[in-house]
């Protein structure tokens, strides 16, 4: 059966996942602690930040919203790099990384859509508009969900890896579109104010909480991603062991 050749190939490469498990197990506690600490500090700074003279207290939604949107894009970029790893080096860990980043990225995207919507209601007078930035982020959300559905549709993860990687890379076109949508089109969403060539245009009292929150989100992402990758590796080992068990029972023909 072709099953045996697959599992043998998988087992020779298990050396790497094993090292990954050991290494990530040691890093995780520190990473998680740092994530929680920076989140606490970031939240404190966000609430200590002065209210905006125009937006009032709603400006604080930005400290949740902006880093979530950044992470939504960063997560997709991580997946795109991992997909390159799947296609070029065929490394099994790359596929694990790409697959497990999906739900986390979808959650960050949803968070940014949700908080943006909550902010838009008092500021723009509507929950949602179909402008370029919002629409392109919504498309990103749909792509996350579509890729998750693709992984779910295949019962053998090894077969889902390459199609999903190709699709992830094709979908990467959307990331620059999201980034530059506010410059290319005339949109309701405000243009970039932090990451721009001539330096940030927002006041330091708001910039610092935002940066700390961004750091916290990044740490949270890597903590969750490492944990999810470890789970996925174990899940695949269970699957391999089950296949072997099936072969060993009753001298299966």
């Amino acid at each position: 059966m072709s099953d045996t050749t697959i599992s043998q190939g998988w087992f020779t490469s298990l050396a790497n996942p094993t090292r990954f498990l050991a290494l990530s197990g040691r890093i995780l506690p520190y990473l998680a602690t740092a994530a929680v600490l920076s989140l606490v500090i970031g939240l404190y700074m966000s609430f200590a930040a002065p209210e905006d003279y125009q937006q009032g207290i709603t400006v604080r939604i930005m400290f949740i919203h902006v880093p979530a949107a950044w992470l939504a894009m960063m997560c997709y970029s991580v997946m795109a790099i991992a997909s390159l790893g799947t296609l070029v080096w065929r490394h099994p860990l790359a596929d694990v990384a790409a697959k497990t980043a999906l739900p986390i990225g979808a959650a960050f995207t949803f968070l940014s859509l949700l908080t943006g919507s909550l902010w838009g209601r008092p500021m723009w007078g509507t929950w949602w508009v179909w402008d370029a930035r919002l629409t392109s982020v919504f498309v990103l959300f749909l792509m996350y969900l579509g890729l998750m559905a693709l992984h779910k549709a295949m019962d053998d993860p090894a077969r889902a890896a390459r199609p999903a990687a190709v699709l992830t890379l094709v979908g990467f076109i959307n990331i620059p579109i999201i980034k530059f949508s506010v410059d290319w089109w005339n949109t309701l969403h405000q243009p970039a104010s932090v990451i721009r060539l001539d330096g940030p245009t927002i006041h330091a009292s708001m910039l610092y909480p935002l940066l700390v929150m961004a750091l916290a989100y990044t740490l949270i992402f890597f903590t969750l991603h490492l944990m999810a990758m470890r789970n996925e590796i174990w899940r695949r080992r269970v699957q391999t062991m089950r296949r072997q068990a099936a072969q060993s029972i009753g001298g299966g023909a």
Binding site: R242, A245, A246, Q247, I249, G250, G252, A253
Partner: peptide, 21 residues
Amino acid sequence: IGLTGVAHLPFGYLSAGQQRR
């Protein structure tokens, strides 16, 4: 049918002969 221990496995993991049994 002589397949003790197979109960917890997904049916799709079994070989054709095991599935028939």
